[in-house]
Simulated scan of single mutants.
Amino acid sequence: MSSTERSHDHTACIKSALHNADLVCRRAGARLTPLRRQVLELVWQSHKPLGAYALMEMLQANSDRKRVAPPTVYRALDFLIEQRLIHKVHSLNAYLGCSNPRSDHSDALFICTQCGFTEEVPSHSIQQAINLSASQQRFTVQQKVLEIVGICGECRGSKG
């Protein structure tokens, strides 16, 4: 565990994410069911992307349910993506909490290959360049996912 993770208050982080989710869903007229809320809470337990099957196992371990079917988890994840409460990390086929779900924003995901820590970082200038290029090509952008893979400062610092 990195020193950044040790000093990070996950309880406050999760509480804030759930509060934001309540606000976002209320404004959208969407229903944050207990299962969707539980999936969101599990996604926020660390800043490392989690796969659907890992979430399914965690749900089963933390629940009275005997079995949670994959379609149930995927429907909850689809809802959370739709509400912009989580991001899908395509390169890892995993999910990460969105740190700013109340605004329409374009961020990049910095993914550490050593420890798995993933951080959402504003990327306005890069997104503007994508929009300009798309416009010049008469291309309509429907989704922008920018994932940058490398080694975080903590892991690079521990190497030497």
Rank of each mutant, 00 (worst) to 15 (best):
M1S: 14
M1V: 10
M1T: 12
R6E: 13
H10E: 09
A12H: 06
K15C: 04
A17L: 08
H19T: 13
N20E: 11
A21I: 06
R26D: 14
R26Q: 14
G29A: 06
L32W: 09
L32Y: 07
L32R: 04
T33M: 07
E41N: 05
Q45M: 05
H47L: 04
K48C: 14
K48Q: 15
G51P: 04
Y53G: 03
Y53S: 12
A54F: 03
L59Y: 09
S63E: 10
R65V: 13
R65W: 13
V68W: 05
V68F: 11
A69Q: 14
P71N: 09
P71F: 04
V73L: 09
R75E: 09
R75H: 12
R75F: 07
D78F: 04
L80C: 08
Q83F: 02
L85F: 07
H87L: 08
H87V: 06
S91Y: 02
L92H: 10
N93T: 11
A94E: 01
Y95T: 02
G97A: 14
C98W: 00
R102K: 13
S106Q: 13
L109V: 06
L109K: 03
C112W: 02
C112H: 05
C115L: 06
F117A: 10
T118I: 03
E119P: 01
V121C: 09
I126T: 08
Q127A: 15
I130G: 00
S135Y: 03
R138V: 00
T140V: 10
V141S: 00
K144I: 04
L146I: 11
V149M: 04
V149T: 11
I151V: 13
I151D: 00
I151N: 00
